[in-house]
Amino acid sequence: MDITLQVNGVSRAVDVDPRMSLLDLLRERLALIGPKKGCDHGQCGACTVLIDGRRANSCLALAVAMDGSEIVTVEGLAEGEALHPLQAAFIEHDAFQCGYCTPGQLCSAAGMLGEPGPSAVTEDLRADPELTPAEIRERMSGNLCRCGAYPNIVTAIAEVAP
């Protein structure tokens, strides 16, 4: 089926098999290997991209259903040579080891910073909470890291958080 989507600001028209996930479309057809396949079931977060500005598991999105969407992958976070502040902070704080969960962590963090409202650890539901380390940990728990870089990931995100 023919679909058109914006990927990192570029319009891409592709003919896709309805069974193809957005993740496989990006990786196998559009040569964007930043989004990673870690579980293919929405259980690890390595495939996280921004769909219409919101973080989402690209493995759970069928490519056909994304017709007309705007997708941002980790390749689209930097402005040319200038890294996104999160990318720079991840390097500075050694917030990864093997690097396989990293693109998902970065897209997730970028999406998370713009997400409204409370989380499961917010005491007072009525107020929009400050992004304390506990809030960051909870909000980033959809991105698993088997190397165990979590404390460094939290430090890196906290540095960039408003």
């Binding site: 990786r27 990673k36 976070l77 990318q87 991840f90 390097i91 050694d94 690097g99």
Partner: peptide
């Protein structure tokens, strides 16, 4: 000194086994 491959890993350019264009 930060990780040498830090930049390619945070920009999504680091190539893992299944990712080589062939």
């Amino acid at each position: 000194m930060n990780r040498i491959e830090g930049r390619v890993k945070v920009t999504g350019l680091a190539t893992y086994a299944a990712e080589y264009p062939v």
